[in-house]
Design a protein around this nucleic acid. Structure first.
Lengths: 192, 192
DNA sequence: GCGCCAGTCTTGACAGTGTCAAGTTGTTCG
DNA sequence: CGAACAACTTGACACTGTCAAGACTGGCGC
């Protein structure tokens, strides 16, 4: 199946190869030719499916946002806990480093891609839902972030980022989830 | 001065050109040859001063960490306010996008560079000092981050990151400092 | 059952990149 | 003055993304 002229699902294979490569050296070091070689096709094959190198990265990011939304939704539905959604946020970053890093590097992506926009919106919705203040817009309009949600989002996002860039002391890096739970025990969100 | 064979201060000129280029397209898109051309020297000149492309980026990051530490120190000394240090953190990220982005991309840097380590340590110290809990180690050992400091650091770092990647709604992007102050009004750090 | 066509992939080329080796120019100091 | 040394240049190499052109296939209508 993988050595036919018509690959079967080359698009899938290329994304998988890309994710693997990104996991090792980051999204900016991705080589289209290396990805193609990894999938056993010629160096120009990716262009046909993704147009661009940015196109491939955009596809990875979109898939990442979908998986991210799934993870956040699962956490909220399983626990109904604001904090557990935050934990899931960080856990996703750790377990899906390649996806997560790609998602938050807009300069490498086609920001106008509709698939990306759709998946991104899903994640945003999951995040707002999990922020504990579902409060649908007064006339059914899209719900917005309030100060508490923005603060919580910033906190978990920053925690994930600092963790992944190696900026935390070893004690935190050894047990990130524990450290985050302790932070949660010390932080209170209120109405100012 | 700039067109002599011996440039005078080519190192400085290259860093400046690099910062300018990074501000436009991010650190991963930096082209050594373009930087060299911008400084009016041959394409291999940068190698002599920085060895590597990573070497140049490391120099930029180190200088960034120094400026960052300065900014945090200034904010703390001027106000003695925990919150104002956080504001200064985000303001630095906005005003020095090129430096800030480079500082937090370890995969592009020589992480073992002593200059980088020194400047990084300065920033870390400034951050701990500004976190409001100076509490020097019992026996003069380096002070550590506690849960409150980790939480506050994560919050401002995440806020800066999400802001710069365009993930915040327009209302927040239009007045980031105001939004951050409002978040600060809603968040309380305590002892759990 | 057959031909043809749209879609899939390959081949070859191009300009641009980082890095290395060797050579050239300038400065400094004995 | 000359010799050692640093700063920079020149040329080459392998590698990259992208484009144009061609080759192969599977499946469609007839």
């Amino acid at each position: 199946m993988t050595d036919r002229y018509h690959h079967g699902d080359l698009r899938r294979a290329l994304i998988d190869a890309a994710v693997e490569a990104i996991a090792e050296s980051g999204p900016s070091a991705l080589s289209l030719r290396a990805v193609a070689k990894g999938a056993g096709v010629s160096h120009a094959a990716p262009a046909h499916h993704f147009g661009d190198k940015s196109g491939l990265l955009t596809a990875v990011a979109a898939e990442g946002y979908d998986r991210f939304a799934d993870a956040l939704d699962r956490a909220w539905e399983a626990t109904g806990s604001f904090i557990e959604v935050g934990i899931a946020y960080v856990r996703f970053a750790i377990d899906n480093k390649a996806y997560f890093e790609t998602m938050f590097r807009p300069e490498l992506l086609h920001e106008d891609d509709p698939e990306l926009a759709r998946a991104e919106a899903r994640s945003r919705a999951a995040l707002i839902r999990g922020s504990g203040e579902p409060k649908p817009g007064p006339d059914g309009e899209a719900p917005e972030f309030n100060a508490n949600a923005l603060g919580a989002w910033s906190l978990v996002h920053g925690f994930a980022g600092l963790l992944m860039t190696g900026n935390f002391p070893p004690s935190v890096a050894a047990d990130p989830e524990g450290a985050l739970r302790e932070i949660a025990n010390h932080v209170r969100f209120g109405d100012g």
